[in-house]
Design a binder for these strands. Structure first.
Length: 894
RNA sequence: GCCCGGGUGGCGGAAUGGUAGACGCAGAGGUCUCAAACACCUCCGGUGCAAGCCGUGCGGGUUCGAGUCCCGCCCCGGGCACCA
């Protein structure tokens, strides 16, 4: 007897799709287009189950839309530049290029058996010279339009390795390799003028109505439009050529609560003082320690240095306020100087308490008291408060009103100007690294910074580089830098910075519309295919990638590479949850140049380091509610039952073993080794089981902690459907039962369609289970069952396309299910005559009645009041209230 | 620290302010079988003999009615501009 055999049917149908050219799309003006795109993967080495989940979601949409008659573009590529390739080269030797293309080949081979409806003819990697050459060409266009410039910016500097570190490479304020304390240092860097678009990027968010609200909120907050006061504070005694300090504040209403004026260690005045006084230099050096992230700056211990200088308060020239240098003020933000108001700001409060500066309130709650010395009072700006040291506006007003009044006051009195500012900073794209797109400019002594000529593009990365030393290999390459100036022809030097990999991913969606064009895009193709109708990706990209892409689309439009309609490139966005897994770490110490694994150090001065382990390297168990792990090799050697927690905990507490720490689940990531290879499941059960499994149960937007438990049952279900299809001819059935089955079928069409449209794949799957159960119990005629099964196969086809084709063929479907039109639910078949109404007594369900769907409320009331449970509860009295919600519920209030 | 999410049975989860737990997993019992596998049937939040009572992270509130709305917390996750 034949049975469901994915190993046979999956390759068979994949060949059939290829032969029919199902997924190779062409520009077809006669059909509506649909562009579905999942965020392309970084080629880390092997795919993990998170990729399967992500790409199956996209495939469900792509296949569904295709069935609905759209010409569907569903491409795939590789976000292939980035640090891991260089790290691999450092650790294992070899070249980033070989590592990257090798990984791409492996991952492509792993993805193909999944049966994704991808147009592989459009595939590219961002590290292909053809792609990054077009990117360089656009960079030059952006330069011409004034969208690119250079300025100083802070970087993480490793003073031992003499190199710039990524934030990821700064661990607890120390360099990951050298262990040296990292410092913030300024460097000349390339920037994109994204700030020119701040207002537009903010306003256009309103139009992104098919984006998740949370992403829109995050982007709005990130851009951070604020109205504030720009003002000068005159120094009591001018110093070193400075006579005033410019400050921007969003809380000018708290001006009377100022306790100090704080400047960044990189403020020009601080720099001047640094040159004069060694103690200032020493403080600034200390204050620059630590990483550049906002988190590091915000959470570092607040340090201040009293410069001895004072400024005059603009509202009271006799009031002198001290000028401090503080480590939590960055030169990148605002003017690099703030006034500290400890009464209404936690950070300033901490600072003033620490250094004994005065703390006063400028406003208090409407009612009650507030101990301002103990805790700052920080209400929402929209709340009304009572001003105790107000100088503009009413005594009682909201913070917002007071800010407006203070700005008006400052402008009238002439000590400041109302200014709108954005939190959004320009996009620093320089990276001092090899494996990225070279910035196509040349530095000429005579001509300055000159763009490379377009006919010389791409500026290709040299292959002969080594990674044995820290720093950028392009910098120390013997010949690559040497080049003729594109303007004057004299010897000049190439720029050695490469571009942030976010640049690569900011326009790939546009390149997919014409991946082989000799220009960045082909306008005809871009006009037809853009925008991306449905973009799918992780919530971790909610801000940076999506904001940069929105900027890039605008810049590309200005340079003639995208039509005006494509400046918001993603019509609809869906953010899928992450697949998470526990992390296993083994502590180790370096003793006498040797690694000692998993034990406590003899000498506590020896720092503990951690190395990650793959899930398959450990045995994990729960004991007393706590998670424990042991090395698999040690458990095997000891011959212990891996499923017996008692035996395992006994081993862990009494035997010599290597310590393994279990960390809570986080997003699967190759670098943390908490990845699960889906290839086992695919090899064992087939792609359809893997696809159905990742689509069932969990809502797509939610994170899921990975477990393979249930994969067996998933395959059993698919085998059951296949068997039900194959057995249709075995019993005659009765036409009298046809209507019930066909009604259920139409119900399923409606529900599954709604599930897919609404990205509720788990609910669509639940409805498919329900319909399968109804089908299995049905004794309808063979014709009706064959029709129902064909429809079931179609409804399942976006999730399990191979199985669906097999059943489709088995039940007499014409051609490929991949090409068949999506079924439509017949409204007449969905109508229900009767409804069940629950009866509540005082909000608790006590009975239920079945009534015609459109029975008038007055009639329903009669039936309810005659109901046994209601009569008993009323005990002769009249109800206080009777609420009838037609078609939903009845509540009797007694 | 700041911004944004999430928290419902043993587990994944469902529920336009209207019957909490659809559907699935795991588990228990049964039918079939010489036996097993497969398949099929029944049960399956807690407590209680039952009627019932309790129950959606915690504490308040609004409402005829709250998992859902409001206020205040706790815990977990994402982002914080050089991980991608």
């Amino acid at each position: 007897m034949s049975r469901y055999d994915p190993a046979v049917i999956e390759p068979k149908w994949q060949k059939a799709w290829d032969k029919a050219g199902c997924f190779t799309v062409r520009h077809d003006p006669n059909r509506p287009k649909y562009y579905v795109l999942e965020m392309f993967p970084y080629p880390s080495g092997r795919i993990h189950i998170g990729h399967v989940r992500n790409y199956t979601m996209g495939d469900v949409v792509a296949r569904y839309k295709s069935s609905c008659g759209f010409s569907v573009l569903h491409p795939m590529g590789w976000d292939a530049f980035g640090m891991p390739a260089e790290n691999a080269a450092m650790e294992r030797g070899g070249h980033p290029k070989d590592w990257t293309y090798g990984n791409i080949a492996v991952m492509r081979d792993q993805m193909k058996p999944l049966g994704l409806s991808i147009d592989w003819s459009r595939e590219f990697a961002t590290c292909d010279p053809d792609y990054y050459g077009q990117q360089q060409s656009m960079f030059i266009d952006f330069m011409e339009k004034g969208l690119v410039y250079r300025k100083n910016a802070v970087v993480n500097w490793d003073p031992v390795d003499m190199t710039v570190l990524a934030n990821e490479q700064v661990i607890d304020g120390k360099g990951w390799r050298s262990g040296a304390e990292v410092e913030r240092r300024e460097l000349t860097q390339w920037f994109f003028k994204i700030s020119d678009f701040a207002e537009d990027l903010l306003e256009a968010i309103d139009g992104l109505d098919k984006w998740p609200e949370k992403v829109r909120t995050m982007q709005r907050n990130w851009i951070g439009k604020s109205r504030g006061l720009q003002m000068g504070w005159d120094l009591t005694a001018p110093h070193g050529g400075f006579d005033r300090i410019e400050v921007y504040t969003t809380r000018p209403d708290t001006l009377m609560g100022a306790s100090f004026l704080g400047i960044s260690p990189d403020h020009p005045l601080a720099r001047a003082l640094e040159a004069e006084r060694p103690e200032v230099a020493a403080f600034c050096a200390e204050a620059r320690k630590g990483g550049t992230t906002e988190e590091a700056v915000e959470t570092a211990e607040k340090l201040g240095f009293d410069t001895g200088l004072t400024v005059k308060h603009p509202l009271d020239p006799t009031w002198e306020i001290p000028v401090w240098i503080a480590n939590f003020i960055l030169m990148d933000y605002g003017t690099g100087a703030i006034f500290g108001c400890p009464g209404h700001d936690q950070r300033d409060h901490d600072f003033c308490r620490k250094y004994g500066l005065p703390i006063v309130d400028t406003f208090l709650p409407m009612e009650g008291d507030w101990d301002i010395g103990a805790e700052p009072f920080v209400p929402l700006k929209s709340e009304g408060v009572r001003y105790t040291r107000g100088f503009a506006g009413d005594e009682v007003q909201t913070g917002d009103a007071a800010v407006d009044a203070a700005i008006a006051h400052a402008e009238a009195a002439g000590y400041g100007t109302g200014v709108t500012k954005f939190r959004l900073r320009d996009w620093g794209l320089s990276r001092q690294r090899y494996w990225g797109c070279p910035i196509p400019v040349v530095h000429c002594e005579a001509c300055g910074v000159v763009p490379e000529k377009k006919e010389n593009l791409p500026v290709e990365l040299p292959d002969d580089v080594s990674f044995d030393k820290p720093g950028n290999p392009l910098d120390r390459h013997p010949t690559w830098r040497e080049v003729a100036c594109p303007a004057c022809g004299k010897p000049a030097k190439r720029e050695t910075d490469t571009m942030d990999t976010f640049v690569d991913s900011s326009w790939y969606y546009a390149r997919f519309t014409a991946p082989h064009a000799k220009t960045p895009t082909d306008m005809d193709e871009a006009k037809y295919w853009m925008n991306v109708d449905q973009y799918i990706g992780g919530i971790e990209h909610a801000i940076l990638h999506l904001l940069y892409s929105r900027f890039f689309a605008r810049a590309m439009h200005i340079c003639g590479h995208l039509p005006a309609g494509a400046i918001e490139p993603f019509d609809a966005l869906f953010t899928q949850g992450m697949v998470t897994h526990e992390i296993y770490e083994v502590p180790y110490h370096i003793v006498d140049g040797r690694e000692v694994l998993g034990h406590s150090p003899i000498n506590s001065d020896i720092p503990t380091r951690y190395r990650y382990l793959y899930p398959e390297e450990v045995v994990v168990f729960t004991y007393d509610g706590a998670r424990h792990a042991l090395l698999r090799s040690e458990v095997d050697a000891a011959g212990i039952d891996k499923l017996n927690p008692d035996a395992l905990i006994n081993f862990k507490t009494s035997q010599k073993h290597t310590r393994v720490e279990v960390r809570p689940p986080t997003k699967m990531s190759k670098s943390k080794k908490n990845v699960v290879d889906p290839m086992d499941i695919i090899a064992r059960y087939g792609a359809d089981t893997a696809r159905w499994f990742v689509m069932s149960d969990s809502p797509p937007e939610r994170d899921v902690e990975w477990t393979a438990a249930g994969a067996d049952a998933t395959q059993k279900h698919l085998a059951r459907v296949w068997r039900l299809a194959s057995e249709i001819g075995e019993k005659p059935g009765a036409a009298a039962e046809d209507e019930a089955l066909l009604k259920a079928m139409h119900r399923a069409i409606a529900d599954v369609t709604q599930g897919i449209e609404g990205f509720a794949f788990n609910k669509a799957v639940a409805k498919l289970y329900e319909f399968t159960n109804t089908f299995a119990k049905s004794n309808a005629s063979q014709d009706a069952r064959r029709q129902a099964m064909r429809t079931l196969a179609q409804l399942m086809s976006p999730m399990v396309p191979h199985l669906a084709e097999d059943i489709w063929a088995m039940t007499g479907g014409e051609g490929l299910v991949a090409k068949a039109p999506w079924p439509r639910a017949d409204e007449a078949m969905l109508a229900e005559d009767n409804v069940t109404l629950p009866i509540q007594i005082n909000g608790k369900r006590r009975a239920e009645i079945s009534v015609p769907k459109d029975m008038p409320p007055a009639e329903v009331e009669k039936i309810v009041l005659a109901d046994e449970a209601v009569v008993k509860a009323l005990a002769g009295a009249a109800p206080k209230k009777l609420i009838v919600v037609p078609g939903r519920i009845v509540n009797v209030v007694i």
